[in-house]
């Protein structure tokens, strides 16, 4: 049973140059206890998707123009966040659905004590009195591995390191034991050793409370480590989705192949250049015609210019591996993956 089911979500931004569809028909679902990795380059719409769920985009510049975002409770109730009232949203935010943001340096209020910022969540959603909320917050800081948590409660954010602040953010998100945790690039701003600790923390929480996790990142290494399933976004759409192993071992979309190829790996031979995907992602202005990846695609067919590829099931039976691509020349695509000793002439 899925905690969250997004159907054909469309999110638009008004800009000087016209309306941009940052998210254009995204569907995905996350089951209880599942970690779904949402990957893509910057501008692909992955962050906008996660912010759309809690309606945290700056309205009215941004608006949800279509689709639904269904949040299911254990008892079977259903709430469409895309149409929820302000009061309904306020009840969900920070309680049933919590969010961890990318930059821990700027995501905590610099003017308030850590304790105040944590405790206000409990005061709001659990109706706790201040002393009880502070005590609970102290315990949560301890649980996320912050040394001397009693003292930290009285600190201001600038007195903490980046890793510590992200732990505080996570503690804040976990205070009400959310059913769904949205993590928008939670490790991007941190250095590698701390990244691993933060990921373990998220994973431990998932195991302890059975929370579902949507992990938004551009870092395939992070996804490979913790995600059960992966969805790859490109130009506002999910172009491929499937179990993590399948996505990395047997990708069906040339973009997924390109992503996998552009990741630095320890077994990459010395002196060999990483191969970026050539070109820039499009901006999604105006109506869509054909596949938006075709200009950067080495395997584009004539049909790609005319028809937007539909979603189709691929891979092993029952693996829920979906792809949007007209080409089925997967063998040729995968031949360019690292490890296969052939180097294509690709523009840097």
């Amino acid at each position: 049973m899925s905690v969250l089911e997004i159907r054909e979500l469309v999110t638009e931004f008004r800009t000087d140059d016209g309306v941009v569809r940052a998210v254009d028909g995204v569907s995905l679902s996350i089951a209880r206890g599942e970690v779904l990795g949402l990957v893509g380059e910057s501008g692909s719409g992955k962050s906008v998707t996660s912010l759309s769920i809690l309606r945290l985009l700056p309205e009215p510049a941004a608006r949800i123009a279509g689709g639904s975002i269904l949040l299911r409770s254990k008892s079977g109730g259903e709430l469409d966040l895309a149409r929820a009232t302000k009061a309904e949203l306020a009840r969900v935010r920070g309680d049933r659905v919590a969010m961890v943001f990318q930059d821990p340096m700027t995501s905590l209020n610099p003017y308030l004590r850590i304790g105040t910022q944590l405790a206000e969540v409990l005061e709001l959603h659990r109706g706790m009195a201040r002393p009880e909320a502070w005590e609970r917050s102290r315990a949560m800081l301890e649980a996320v591995g912050i040394p001397d948590p009693g003292r930290r409660l009285n600190d201001h954010p600038h007195q903490l390191s980046g890793g510590m602040r992200q732990r505080v953010m996570i503690a804040m998100a976990l205070l009400c034991e959310p059913e769904l945790l949205l993590a928008d690039e939670p490790t991007t701003a941190l250095d590698v050793t701390i990244q691993a600790q933060i990921l373990e923390l998220v994973d431990a929480q998932r195991q302890r409370t059975g929370a579902a996790v949507l992990l938004v990142t551009h870092d395939l290494g992070v996804v490979a480590r913790v995600a059960d399933r992966v969805a790859v976004m490109y130009a506002g759409r999910i172009v491929e989705e499937g179990p993590t192993e399948a996505i990395f071992a047997e990708p069906f979309h040339p973009y997924t192949v390109g992503l996998a190829r552009s990741v630095p790996r320890l077994d990459t031979p010395r002196g060999r250049r990483l191969e970026p995907i050539r070109g820039m992602p499009p901006r999604n202005l105006g109506p869509r015609r054909g596949c938006s990846f075709r200009a950067r695609c080495d395997f584009a067919l004539e049909v790609c210019a005319e028809l937007d590829p539909e979603r189709r099931a691929v891979g092993a039976e029952g693996s829920r591996h979906l792809v949007r691509c007209h080409s089925d020349d997967v063998a040729k695509m995968r031949a360019t993956l690292p490890g296969v000793a052939r180097r294509l002439e690709v523009l840097p």
């Binding site: 949203l89 935010r93 920070g94 309680d95 995501s107 308030l112 206000e120 953010m169 804040m172």
Partner: peptide, 27 residues
């Protein structure tokens, strides 16, 4: 109001009034 920490305050479920008075006004 555009800063990240105000978005965090919204993500906590605070009302618009609390977001402004408790989190935004001081800065």
């Amino acid at each position: 109001v555009r800063s990240d920490f105000v978005r965090t305050a919204r993500a906590k479920g605070l009302s618009e009034r609390s977001v402004v008075l408790r989190h935004a006004l001081r800065g």
